[in-house]
Design a protein around this nucleic acid. Structure first.
Lengths: 417, 417
DNA sequence: CTTACTTTGATGAACCACCCAACGAAGTGA
DNA sequence: TCACTTCGTTGGGTGGTTCATCAAAGTAAG
């Protein structure tokens, strides 16, 4: 499956690695002078100067004033150049398409949401819409004079990231959709700069890059909505498994006698903790909170109001879901020993009523006290995690290999005689 | 926790990477001429010649005759030099200490087993014994004129590989034992060349390097004995988790109403599939197979005989364990999506009576048909997997960085005038 | 036996990236 | 104004890879 062939290391690769090192250092530590970059990265001052000037010519970094000098010559600060290299994240969901454009600094350049009945529209028509959205984003990027690093699409389902194919997205009722090919054909961007990935994987990436677990290398991200998905990061690298289907935690069977699930088994985790289950437990069928015309955010607002008011049935339901969440998390923590678990999707919205119950279950079920110390955090990115992760992913390729970014002709500062 | 600081890439690192590339190519493809190495690795012929001559001077490779030429000048074959660089694997178990010395070709140079009541002896005295065993192995290595790459100790428990500390080994009743420090102090070997790791992790490494799942990059290795441990490999890299405790699958709670476990929970996987459970289900308390003075291998022989004879109670017990094995594996496969699952320890010995039951459970419980395609294989290394993995691990450091191996003075082939 | 052809592996020049040391530049403090 | 400190650039040096070339060592055919 995987190629395994490692290309030989050459001087170009060496250069690439050190360019990426400077970019990463800047990402992690913010604005720095060349001398500080040298100290932080371990590279010599001479090399840093050289690398920075190349990064400048590729518009990945730019000058940013002087260090507040206390003594000696002040340093010339350098920062990741905002608004010159952008990543485009797209998201396909049951109810809408969404797009976000991020720049290297992580700030949102533009975003857009297109309500859409994806299931009814079918894959091909949906792809048309997606491409139109992408073109609109590309136009915006061009309008602000930036360079689009790439597009990454977040999909709620099983994705073959190598081939760029959505293998199976049950909620969308998609099967074997060549999304990357379809998108690249409709948009003026080379194939290599388009990608698809699972939404939970991308959410994990976003939380790792700029979210709740910023900088945590061993990370588990659980995203709850109509289903449950997990994104895994081990030693900073996404764990996809042999065929890209790792993290399918929704149908872990936690109780052989539990309620049956459409998947054919009993006691699936998803059937204990997804939003539908919470609603069923906390309300009667005719309760307005279950009104099918309600958007997810409205439903959550109602739940929050009731929980804040101390409504017994709501609180009990939240405890039940929190407990079940903890049981499943304990299992995953035993297997993966993450430093942090980020709760995304609707779990983040109801975090304060869920965590404690989950924590109690985890504490009693995780063998090693060190592993049990895993932080359980609410996502700071909420429902935008996946799409931000998509944009980050698109930029990551350039940050890992800055020579991909085009060199712009620099006007000479002085005309020679 | 983890340092995160990536050292800058320099030319020495470049050299290192390419030396390692040649070694790896040789490992994967066996004897090759320089020209073939050039083609396989992507390096130029000039560079390959250069690299090979350095590897020769460090005695990692040696000449191995000529290619069976069909036309043109025959190539000068080069192979990983057997018997010149050795890795030493040690294993601590309830009943014995064991040592194996492997060379680069993967052949066993020597091995030794020391029966020992580890629990009764206590950690320090056990360490003394371990050090003596290590010294004996080092003496053997020296006697055959080889260079010891390092020592890696396999321990059944939670290990902090960074610090070289056994955090907790319940079966041995060890807690917070600074094994690497203790060993290095007693043996004439620098600290950096001693390591400890979990036995299941090392078993996974061995199965990946030279065992049942040779070359499979996404691998799960389940080792059954008195407890159950798992070793994980994702994209060829061991998954250890944030504090090195990933793979603690023994106490996954698969059934909230299951039998209680000393760990405090119910329905732990270990209590459903470990050897003790199998014995309890298949036999009465006074059955000779349960004789406490019996060694594990003898017990297994009896079980095999009964199973082959078609003993109903034995077969039923094997089915029960096989089913439980499958239930847990299904869960792990959903989370990790490995390409192969290797059954080690006693599961390998009873493989033929366990697999089918496990496979049925997996097929019905794994959501994605692609993920369910994971191969369930018996370990080909059996109880020696962990220790072989230890020796491999010790050599891996040198194979990844051949400059660690000392240069030996080469006698000139001809005396000049 | 000689000649042509093929393939291998070694050699030397060229290139490229990094590092070190030294230096000028640009501030602060006495 | 003069030390002093720190910054960033410059030039020379080292090391590693590649390309082009060439001798070496075989086979195949006349």
């Amino acid at each position: 499956m995987r190629n395994g062939h490692v290309p030989p290391a050459d001087q170009a690769g060496l250069r690439r690695a050190n360019l990426a090192l400077v970019v990463r250092t800047l990402r992690e530590h913010g604005q720095q002078s060349r001398a500080q970059l040298s100290a932080l990265s371990g590279l010599s001052k001479a090399t840093v100067s050289n690398l920075v000037s190349e990064l400048e010519s590729r518009r990945l970094v730019r000058a940013a004033g002087l260090t507040a000098g206390r003594q000696g010559r002040p340093g010339q600060l350098v920062e990741l150049s905002p608004g010159s290299v952008c990543g485009i994240g797209l998201e396909i969901n049951l109810e809408y398409l969404r797009a976000t454009v991020l720049d290297l600094a992580g700030t949102v350049v533009t975003e857009q949401l297109v309500p859409l009945r994806v299931v009814e529209l079918g894959p091909q028509r949906c792809l048309d819409q997606l491409a139109e959205l992408a073109r609109s984003m590309l136009a915006t990027v061009a309008a602000v004079g930036a360079w689009p690093a790439g597009i990454t699409v977040a999909v709620p389902g099983l994705v073959d990231t190598q081939a760029g194919v959505v293998r199976f997205a049950p909620n969308l009722r998609w099967r074997q959709i060549a999304l990357v090919d379809g998108l690249a054909a409709r948009v003026d961007l080379p194939l290599e700069r388009c990608a698809v990935d699972n939404d939970a994987n991308l959410a994990a990436l976003a939380e790792h890059t700029s979210g709740a677990a910023s900088g945590t290398d061993d990370l588990l991200c659980i995203v709850g909505s109509s289903g449950v998905g997990a994104g895994l990061l081990a030693a900073g690298v996404p764990v996809r498994g042999a065929s890209g289907f790792a993290g399918e935690v929704g149908h872990l069977s936690l109780d052989p006698l539990g309620p049956s699930c459409p998947c054919g088994n009993r006691g699936c985790w998803e059937r204990q903790i997804d939003l539908g289950t919470l609603l069923e437990v906390m309300s009667s069928p005719d309760d307005p909170v279950r009104d099918p015309s309600l958007a997810v955010s409205d439903r959550l607002r109602i739940i929050r109001v009731r929980a804040e008011a101390g409504d017994r049935r709501t609180l009990d339901a939240l405890q039940q879901v929190g407990d079940a969440l903890g049981v499943g998390l304990a299992l995953l923590i035993n297997v993966l020993n993450p430093a942090a678990v980020v709760l995304g999707g609707y779990f983040a919205e109801l975090y304060e009523w869920l965590v404690e119950h989950a924590r109690i279950q985890i504490a009693s079920r995780v063998l090693s006290p060190e592993a049990a110390r895993a932080a359980i955090l609410p996502s700071t990115l909420g429902f935008t995690a996946a799409i931000r992760g998509g944009a980050q992913h698109a930029m990551r390729m350039v940050m890992d290999n800055p020579t991909l970014a085009p060199v712009v002709a620099s006007e000479p500062t002085e005309a020679p005689a």
